[in-house]
Structures are given as C-alpha cells and as structure tokens.
Design a binder for these strands. Structure first.
Length: 444
RNA sequence: GGUCCUAUCGUCUAGUGGCCUAGGACACAGCCCUUUCAAGGCUGCGGCGCGGGUUCGAAUCCCGCUAGGACCGCCA
C-alpha cells in the first residue's frame, strides 16, 4: 500500500436513478485508488438537473455503495472540510465564479444564462494515466454539423450550473488530485481544462476508465437486463463478488490473482494497470466469482446470505438452530452459483413440505427398499460412515443389488431431488427421527 | 459532418522488441473421482483485425486501412 495521503478522489453521481453497474464500477475504482494510497474518497451529489434528481435516488445510491463496501470519507451525509457536498447547495459558489469570468471578459451573458467563450488556437491536450497523451486543439470544439466554434454554457437559464462547469469548480475547491471517471468523459475533459485555465487553477490528473458493455458489445443498458446494483443483490449475488467482478473489468493484478477481497484489491490496485478497451459484462464469470466467494464464506456469514432467500420462499427457518442450518450449508458448499440457487437447492433441510410437493415414488420395488430401510434405521449410530457401511453390506449380500438403486430412493425421500450432497451425510445431519419420518411417509 | 478513443482465444485478461511454437481465468468438450449432481484434479478446443514499414528480431514501435465506440445538450 503506498502512502500518498494527499490523494483525494471522488465519485460524483447524479441522483436520477439507482446505482447502476457503470456507476458502481467508477465508484469502485475511485475507492480503490483512495484506499491504495491511504488517501480520501469523497462522495459528491450532482443534483443540478432539477427535473430528474430526487432525494430518494440519492439515498438509494448511497446504500448501494455501502452494500458494495465502498465507504467514503466526506459526503453529504457525513460532511467534511470542503462541503457542502451537494451541488444544489453550492449555487452561490458557481454564480460567483461565473460572474468573475464575465467580469474578466472570459464569459458572457445570454439572457439568464452565462456562456464561456471558447477561443480558437488553444492547445488543450492532456495526459491521461490510462489513455496516455490525448491531443486536442480548441479549434476542434465545433457545433454539430457546423464549422462554428461551440461556446460552453456554464450557467443555465434556470440558474443552475452545467456539468462541465460545476465539475471543475467542485473538483478544484474540493482539492481533487485525480479525476477518475468513465471514458465517455474524455471528450469533455478539454472543455473543462479551458475553464481551469480561465480561472487560473491547476488541472488535476485524469484517469479515464473503459466502458462496460453488454453481451452484444453495446453500452450496458436496460435492454441487457439487470443494470442496477440492487438487482444483483436480489438475484443472490453477494457484495464481495460484485466488488471482485467489477474490479476485474478493466483491471488485473497482473499475477493471475482473480479471486480476492476488498483489502487485497486495494493493496494491489494501480491506475497504471487499468486497460483501455471496453469490457463486456460476462455473467458466466460473475457466476463463477460468486460461487468462489460463496465457498469461501464463514458458516455464519454464509447463513446470513442464504437465510433471506429461504424466508422469501416461505420456509420455516426459525424452527431450526443456526448451527444446523450452517452445517447444512457447509454440506452444500460448491453447489449453486448464487445465494438464491443455494437456497433453492437446499430447501429440504429446512422443511419436508417442498419434498412432498416434488416427489411421488413410482415403479419402485418397495419390498426390497423396506428391507433396506429397516436395516438402515437399525443402525446403532446415525453417522454417515456407519450408514454407508450398512448400505454397502446390504448390496454385497443381495444378488444384483446396486448402490444407486437404494441411494437414489433414499435421496428422493429425503430431498425430493435427484441431486444432493452425499445422501448419507445429508441423513446424518437431518437426524434419525427426521429421516425416519420422511422415509415412512413414502414407504412402509 | 467535426474531434477524440479502442483493437490479443467466444468473454475477462497477461504481455511494454528477443524468455511467446503468445500465459492464466471463465465458458465449452473429454477423462478421473463417484450413490446423484456439483466441487476438485487432468487433458483438449480456441486468439495477436488487415496491409505496409522500422529492426538481426515485432503481439509489442511507426504509417495506412478496416471495424467498433465516445463526445459535439441550458443531461450528467
């Protein structure tokens, strides 16, 4: 971990929707850079679009960030030395600097609006940590389908500052050392540099991040399904996994390290290792990463991840001890890619009802099976190993008997599924009484 | 139309002139394990967009082409 305590970066969402994948990705990289350097991560709300911004979305975005594990050091909710952190509360500041620009002849009024004058012939190139040298002349700042140079609106007719202007004022006043944001802002950067210069301010270091694309390689949008971070939570993806997955989009530790924790990522993170190419959001990889984290969880944490999904399915979670449920999930380790799947695949541990709803015996040799079950339940100890030994002895002593002919009916009676962890281990955990109850329901 | 950006297996990427007959991961296929299915182990399939240079030597540097993309809003 390097120690550039003066590093200050920010995530500046506009509260016009929930925290989406792209926003979470940007926030994550800023957080990573701040934590890597032991610097500060600031949250600023860009709510200058009066029509679309709401306090509800502001809350949703903040809780989305918390869910991902991205904590900030300064922000509208906790304050800080450079507030306020909501643009709608900084209107006087924007107005003052705009007037200054007008007085210096660098901007002009147009009705209620204030427009920044773009002069031709200026070199507004900059060096991006990710993209390298980007060369631009102000002469290229044209109006669409025209040769006319396009001046920059800085204060709108409604008195609110525009993005390209407010972002400069705030980033400077909030002492940002690095501006880390999506690649779609590269073209905005030269305009912002013009404003920094007009105000006589030092330009921060820029680092643009590659975009995130859908399977069809188009910019990620609602068409691709889930775009809000919360939708992933509801699908059973865990915050650790989303963090891990998002961190891998456009960055790698460079040492085949793919499954990691937040603190490991913060330790290894380097802006200079961020890639330039837009990355496709790959569900298969997300699933894999989620599964890995699911496997690695401590039993009590795993239970806390799965429980909500059992409850949602109406299962009587409260009638079991946490220990029992944790053990059940430990047995399930490696099964299911999401918390939701794992909950679905393990419902029989919580209740016999779903089993009954799923399975009805058909075409089985009940006589033989009853003989088998009788021996099984006569076992002096209800342990997986003992039960399996009984089964093997039974098979050895019966001509033509196969393990699967007995293990599968047992599995179905206990779980209602054709797939489960080792059935004798399941039986041990469920306990003799419960197993007997289930088997007797179907046989005998 | 203008400005800018990008280009390694299907996907995420390693790679910064020789260690590359291009490495890893996901996905996919096969095998092993096995009471089922996962997990795990092993094997396989599969890529430097094209064309020119520079160089003893290029995935790596330069030019062109092609293909994607971003921005050009009193949205952010």
């Amino acid at each position: 971990m390097s120690d550039n305590k003066n590093v200050r970066v920010r995530f500046a969402p506009s509260p016009t929707g929930a925290l989406h994948i792209g926003g979470g990705h940007t926030a994550l990289f800023n957080w990573l850079w701040a934590r890597h350097n032991n610097g500060k991560f600031i949250l600023r709300i860009e709510d200058t679009d009066l029509v679309r911004s709401t306090k509800e979305y502001e809350q949703t975005i903040m809780s989305g960030m918390k869910w991902l594990g991205l904590d900030w050091d300064e922000g509208p909710d906790i304050g800080g030395d450079y507030g306020p952190y909501r643009q709608s509360e900084r209107l006087d500041i924007y107005r003052d600097y705009a007037n200054k620009l007008v007085n210096e002849g660098k901007a002009y009024k147009d009705g209620e609006a204030i427009i920044f004058k773009v002069e031709p012939g200026q070199d507004i190139s900059f060096n991006d940590i990710v993209y390298g040298q980007i060369n631009v002349m102000s002469d290229g700042l044209k109006e669409q389908n025209s040769d006319k140079l396009k001046d920059i609106v800085i204060i709108k007719s409604d008195g609110m500052p525009t993005y390209n202007y407010a972002v400069v004022i705030d980033d400077h006043l909030m002492k940002m050392t690095h501006v880390i944001r999506g690649e779609d802002h590269i073209s905005n950067t030269p305009k912002q540099i013009l404003i920094y210069r007009a105000l006589g301010w030092e330009v921060p270091t820029f680092a643009h991040l590659p975009m995130i694309l859908g399977r069809d390689k188009k910019k990620l949008s609602k068409r691709h399904g889930a775009t809000s971070i919360y939708e992933y939570r509801d699908m059973g993806y865990m915050p650790d996994s989303m963090f891990n997955f998002l961190a891998l989009l456009g960055w790698s530790a460079g040492d085949d390290k793919e499954i990691f924790t937040r603190s490991q990522a913060a330790e290894w993170f380097e802006l200079s290792r961020v890639t330039k190419k837009a990355a496709v959001f790959d569900f298969d990889k997300l699933n894999y990463i989620n599964q890995e984290h699911l496997k690695a969880l401590a039993p009590d944490v795993r239970l806390s991840m799965i429980k909500p999904f059992w409850i949602e399915a109406g299962l009587p979670v409260e009638s079991h001890s946490d220990k029992y449920l944790e053990d059940a999930l430990t047995l399930m380790a490696g099964r299911g890619r999401t918390a939701k799947e794992m909950a679905e695949f393990s419902d029989y541990f919580v209740s016999f009802e779903p089993v009954k709803a799923r399975w009805t015996p058909e075409g089985l040799d009940k006589e033989k099976l009853n003989e088998f079950f009788k021996e099984l339940f006569a076992s002096p100890e209800w342990k997986a190993e003992a039960l399996e030994n009984i089964a093997r002895n039974f098979i050895a002593s019966h001509e033509g008997a196969k393990m699967k002919d007995y293990a599968m009916p047992l599995r179905f009676a206990l779980t209602g599924m054709k797939v489960s962890p080792g059935i004798f281990e399941v039986a041990e955990l469920m306990g003799k009484d419960e197993c007997e109850k289930r088997v007797k329901f179907y046989f005998d």
